[in-house]
Computed example of a mutant assay.
Amino acid sequence: MLLRPVFRSIVLLSAVLFSLTGCGGGGDKPAANANLSGVKLILGDQAKGLRTIVEASHAFDGLPYQVEWANFQGAAPLFEALRAGAVDLAPAGDTPVLAAATGGAPLRIVAVRRSQSRSIAILVPKDSPIHSVADLKGRNVVVSSARGSISQYLLIRALANAGVNENDVKIGFVLPTDALSAFNAGKIEAWATFGIYQAFAEEAGARVLISGEGINTGLTFITASDAVLSDALRRQALNDVLQRMAKAFDWARNNPDEYAKIFAKTNDIPLPVSQRLHSWGLEALLPVEERDIKALQGVDDLFVEKKIFPNAVDVAKLVDREAFAK
Rank of each mutant, 00 (worst) to 15 (best):
Q73E: 14
K40T: 15
G205Y: 08
I171R: 04
P30A: 13
L238W: 06
G85F: 00
H58K: 15
A232F: 00
S19F: 12
P30R: 09
D127T: 14
F303C: 04
Q152I: 00
A201T: 00
D320N: 15
N140G: 00
L89P: 07
L123G: 08
S128F: 03
G27A: 03
R4V: 15
R108K: 14
V315E: 10
G62Y: 10
G62V: 02
D250A: 14
T102N: 02
N161H: 13
Q236L: 15
D231H: 10
F60Y: 15
E203L: 02
E166D: 12
A100V: 08
F200R: 11
L41A: 11
G93W: 06
K170P: 12
A101S: 10
V67Y: 08
I215W: 05
A264K: 07
L41E: 11
P272N: 12
A232Y: 05
V174S: 06
N254H: 12
I53H: 01
L175R: 14
L209S: 10
R235H: 07
E203D: 13
A32M: 04
A134K: 14
N254G: 14
A246W: 09
A111P: 05
R234K: 15
Q236I: 03
R321W: 10
G93Y: 07
H278T: 01
L43P: 00
